[in-house]
Amino acid sequence: MSSDLPVGAVLDSGEPARLLASKLNRHTFWCGQSGSGKTYALGVLLEQVLLHTSLPIVVLDPNSDFVKLGSVREDAPSEGSALSGRDIRVLRPGADHDPLKVRFVDMDIRSRAAILQLDPILDREEFNVMLRTDTVQIDKIDEPLVDLLRRTDDPQFQQIAMRLENLGVTEWDLWAWGAADVTDVIDEKADATVVDLGSFGTPEEQQATALAALDHLWAHRDERIGRLVVIDEAHNLCPPTPSTPLERLLTDRIVQIAAEGRKYGIWLLLSTQRPSKVHPNALSQCDNLGLMKMSSARDLAELGDVFGYAPQQMLQRSPAFTQGQVLFAGGFTPNPQLVQVSPRLTHEGGADVAVPLR
C-alpha cells in the first residue's frame, strides 16, 4: 500500500488530498471549535493510519468518541472491509471483555502519591510508609489493597488504608489489583487500543488511568517502539494551569513526552477545541497542524505565532470553514492545503444528538 494517507479532497481544486504517513513521527496538534467536525475528521485520519501503516495507535478517549473505531459502516466503500481485519481493542470500565483496569501497586511511586494527595516532604511519614509497602509484597496480591493493609499489625499501614477510604479511592471502578490492566493490553501492540476514559464516573479516574498508561510508555521508552498516542479533548488531561497533584503530574508527563518522546517513538496527537486550553509547553512541540473552523481572532493569532509554517492567508480562512473542512500544515503535508475530509468508514462514537421533531 501507498505510504500516503488519502484523507479527502483539496478545496480549491478537488484533487485528492493526502498526508505523509512517514511524518507522523512528529507531534501533531489538531483543533477546531465545537461543531467543526473535529472528532469526525480525526477519525478519518486514524482509519487511514490503520489501513496504510502498521503503526500501533493508543487513543486516550475522554468522551468515548472512538469506541466504535472497529465498527465498519454498512455503506462504507470496499476499502472499509480491510478495517474489519485490524486488531482494534476497546477497553471500557465494567466490560466483560477487555475491561479497563489499572494496577495501583504497579504505578510509579509519584503517581500513587498524587492519587493519595501525599507530599514527600509535608506528608513525609505517610509517604515513607507507602514506600515501605513493598515489604508486604503488594505486587503479589489479588485483593483490594485496603483489606491487606488493615490486616497488618502496623498502625501506619492502617493509616494509608484510612486515607484510601477517606479519599474515596477504594470506590473507583478502576483497580485491577492482581488482574490484567491497561498496560498489559498496550504491551500487546494491537493496531489500535482505545482507552475509554469517558465511561468513568470522576475526572480523577480518567486522569489516573491516563497517567498509568503514559507512565508505562515512558518507562519503556528505550524499547523505541513507534506509537501514535492520541489524546482527544487534550484540555481534560493537559490544561495550562493544572490544579491538583494528580492533574499536575499528568500534565508534566505529557509535557515531558512532548519535549523528549519523539526520539523514542512516542508521538503525540493532541486534539482540542482551542489552543489556549492546552499547556503551552506541549503545544509548542507540535510540528504538524490540523486546523478546522476557528472563529476566535485571538486563537487564530496564537496559532499563527506557534505554527509559523501555516500560511497566514490560509489561517484567516478558518472562520469561514464549513463542517469537515480543515487546514493541514507542517511536516505531514507536502504543502499547506485546505481539505474537505472524506466520509468515515467506521461509526462515530460521539455523534451529535438530533433534535426530535414532531
Rank of each mutant, 00 (worst) to 15 (best):
P120G: 07
L237G: 02
D154H: 06
I231D: 04
M162Y: 13
G324K: 02
Q159G: 14
D191C: 14
D173Q: 11
K38W: 05
D215R: 02
S54R: 09
E74D: 11
E79F: 08
L83S: 04
L303I: 13
T241E: 11
V182Q: 01
P280E: 00
T152Q: 10
A320K: 14
F157W: 08
T53I: 03
D222R: 09
F328M: 02
L148C: 03
I254G: 01
A176E: 04
A297D: 12
I231C: 09
V136Y: 10
F200K: 02
L83K: 02
L283V: 13
A351I: 03
N288Y: 07
S36G: 10
L164P: 10
D87E: 10
Q48D: 09
Q313D: 15
W177F: 13
D181E: 05
I266C: 07
R163V: 07
D196M: 08
P240Y: 00
E165N: 11
V72G: 12
S36M: 05
L69A: 11
S284V: 06
T170F: 12
S81P: 05
S284M: 10
A213H: 05
V49I: 11
G178H: 12
L11T: 03
L289P: 13
N128V: 01
R253I: 01
P311G: 08
W177Y: 10
D187G: 15
E47I: 04
E143H: 02
L122Y: 13
R150K: 08
L116N: 06
M314Y: 13
N281Q: 12
G290K: 04
W218M: 01
L269V: 02
A76N: 08
M162K: 13
V339I: 08
G261M: 04
Q159D: 09
L246M: 15
V136L: 15
T244L: 09
L83Y: 01
G350Q: 05
E260K: 14
L131T: 08
R253H: 03
T241Y: 14
L167K: 12
P275Y: 05
L83T: 00
S111L: 14
F200R: 01
H279P: 12
L91I: 03
